[in-house]
Design a protein around this nucleic acid. Structure first.
Lengths: 207, 207
DNA sequence: GTCTATAGAATGATAGAC
DNA sequence: GTCTATCATTCTATAGAC
């Protein structure tokens, strides 16, 4: 009994993991409406009906994909250390964001798709968690400005620039690869990109 | 006879214009697969069959939408004046890109969707026109570096940063509005954004 | 927990009257 | 040039055998 239950639990966990991973890819490529349960089922190598066994509706599956991505976003958000110097805090935050762009390009694309579409699902997160997080970081950046540690720039636009630039390497990876002899960036190129982004932004705000 | 022909031509032009405009919106919001001819027809306030009278297939309509957007892209590309100083060339280019983000947010989103999906339609443009344009600008930026006019940064990553940052204001306009008390940026805020982006990038590369 | 078969709605596209 | 009716296909979701 216990063995069977354990086995079933394991199978369940594996299938859930496979489905969520493939769903992330398909949603990234086609958006919510454009993605089909059939395409996700094919990618996961499962009959379509099995998807509905694990996730009652397409929307429920999409929500879980979004939840996972938001967890990763929170992880990056934490790396913006409000007690560090501007150099340390921003360098770490940018590096973390670049690592996420490389490790989770599909998640980033799903997020981008969501926002482009007016954030029908994640609007709650934007209004609450993201909004509050942004306010605390704006306060920190303003303190840096008062202390003369950086130039008097608009904190919001600094954050937008960091988000835009780092996420661009995930969301527009196809365009970047095309301009890189049709090859994805290699290790050295990712390092170089991270250093370039960090250097220009830090110097650009006088840090 | 001539009157009728003229009238028909006028109606045709008007309808084409309306359909293309609404199609841009719907494709921006739902991507190619997610957009439906019915949704575009409803937005244009026309029966679905009329869309197929003007555009044989959904793909043909999408291609024309993409063509229009690429024309705008070319316009921005021209504003990167290779004979100007770094300050002049980049200031003008960034301003132009910001103006486009404000004037054509849907076009920018369609473009973003296309690239996220692996550029199935615009791959030719990326390989030819964009690639060649990028090479010429990289050469110019490298000359600036040799002449000591700017810091020795990787030209590609400078271009990516400009694209990412300026297009972010169109593609992520919903998120930006959410963090702006649920209001789109007003005139003054757009000016401030443009100035911030320009200042940080120019100072960031030592121009 | 798996999978075939299928219901019921929506989709791209067309025919044909006006 | 417009628009209703409709076809063939595909979609989400479910029923029910194993």
């Amino acid at each position: 009994m216990q063995v069977n239950t354990a086995k079933k639990t394991r199978i369940r966990q594996e299938n859930l993991s496979i489905i969520l991973g493939k769903a992330e890819q398909i949603f990234a490529e086609f958006g919510f409406k454009g993605a089909t349960m059939q395409a996700i089922a094919d990618a996961a190598d499962l009959p379509k009906a099995n998807l509905h066994y694990y996730f009652p509706t397409k929307l429920a599956l999409y929500r879980q994909v979004i939840e996972r991505i938001f967890t990763i976003w929170l992880e990056a958000a934490d790396s913006f250390d409000t007690s560090a110097t501007p150099q340390e805090a921003l360098t770490r935050y940018i590096r973390k964001k670049m690592e996420i762009s490389r490790a989770h390009p599909y998640g980033s694309k799903v997020w981008a798709n969501e926002v482009i579409q007016g954030a029908p699902i994640i609007q709650d997160y934007l209004q609450t968690t993201l909004n509050e997080w942004t306010d605390t970081r704006i306060a920190v950046i303003n303190r840096w400005i008062e202390q003369g540690l950086i130039d008097p720039i608009d904190p919001r636009h600094l954050l937008y620039m960091i988000w835009a630039t780092t996420q661009h390497y995930a969301d527009f990876s196809h365009q970047i690869a095309t301009l890189n002899d049709n090859r994805p960036l290699d290790d050295a190129q990712w390092q170089r990109a991270t250093r370039n982004v960090t250097d220009v932004i830090l110097k650009g705000i006088g840090a």
